[in-house]
Nucleic acid binder design. Structure first.
Lengths: 193, 193
DNA sequence: GCTATTCTGGAATAATCGTTCCTTTATTTT
DNA sequence: AAAATAAAGGAACGATTATTCCAGAATAGC
């Protein structure tokens, strides 16, 4: 009936992600975006509405990818405490590979949050709630199993883990020595037991 | 001889800081900036060269303020470990007061780093080096005093503290419960001993 | 072949960007 | 009063912003 879409949606969304990830929303112009996505202006607007919608779409997609990675770690059937550590380990590796020093897309979005629309803010808040909720749940299980002292406040520990997690991801942008950063993970875990 | 400057430099720089702090560099337009600084276009350009230079000036100034606060904490003569804790405590309080949810100016700048000029990047890298250096020094002293296990790697602990520090400051942007965040500080300190 | 859809490429829009410049008024010191 | 500087306000700059629109070529199924 009609000419099919020539570009691969996944490829194009990945390229858009790279762009927003490294340069943020406001510093990314449509010209740069189109050039990097290898898309004509017309194709872009018919397929993605506008810049704002694309950003939202791409951030949500990043979040889903991360969730998938976490789900897979959980399915490994490790102990609660080991699961926490593994999540952080792969989370750190994921952002390290690929382009250098771009940090974490979600972290960068958070610091740009005030200037983004309400839908994007909701994605970010939702991510924070979910991550802390997951950590809290894992901590409770670990406490039942005796891996973590049951007298400790699970919600506080969860907030602690999440804060640290965001922090290392930010540090990875400036830090030259990656081994040191990975070593901090063990230090962090030491505070849990 | 001549008409003296009417605006107060400190006041105006504080207003500029607020602006860049909450909205970042790229999302802050000159119109908004001038309106918020309560300065005419002409006065602005004769006094501050341009937007880029002002940002640089204001970030450097923020850093100096922070350094001053730290110096004052150090001069209290607390033990090395207590000094570390106090630095983090006041650092957390400093960003909490004033406008809400704006996080930390330096942290926000870091995530926007890739799109800023080399001079600004240098300020950020310098801040990281200095902060980690300070923490490392305090840790070594604490190890000599027996407050911290001497077998632990001081550089790794320093990177750990700094990562956590950046992380909580970021968390403060999304987190509704401030008490929980402050409680994470004790958890973090637990990993040092 | 016909129709429908998507492609590329570029023109054109209106708005906004940072910056420069000019004019007028105000306030200081000599 | 004269000289010097700074203020405010606004016009104007060219560049760039996001977005819309149009023309023509390409490719699918009927």
């Amino acid at each position: 009936m009609a000419r099919p879409r020539a570009f691969d949606m996944e490829t194009v969304l990945n390229r858009a992600t790279e762009m927003f990830w490294t340069r943020g929303y406001h510093a990314t112009s449509m010209d740069e975006l189109l050039k990097h996505m290898k898309l004509s202006r017309a194709s872009f607007y018919t397929n993605f509405t506008n810049k704002e919608t694309l950003y939202q779409m791409v951030l949500e997609r990043y979040r889903n990818t991360q969730s998938g990675v976490i789900e897979r770690v959980i399915s490994l059937g490790l102990s609660p405490l080991e699961t926490i550590k593994r999540i952080l380990t792969v989370g750190l590796q994921a952002d390290a590979e690929g382009a250098t020093n771009r940090g974490c897309f979600m972290v960068n979005s958070t610091s740009e949050m005030e200037t983004l629309n309400e839908d994007v803010k909701e994605i970010i808040r939702c991510n924070q709630r979910d991550m802390e909720g997951l950590f809290e749940q894992l901590i409770r299980k670990a406490q039942e199993k005796g891996e973590i002292n049951p007298s400790k406040n699970a919600a506080v520990l969860a907030a602690y883990i999440f804060s640290y997690f965001q922090g290392v991801k930010l540090s990875s942008m400036t830090h030259e020595n990656v081994e040191v950063l990975q070593a901090t993970l063990d230090v962090m875990m030491g505070a849990l037991v």
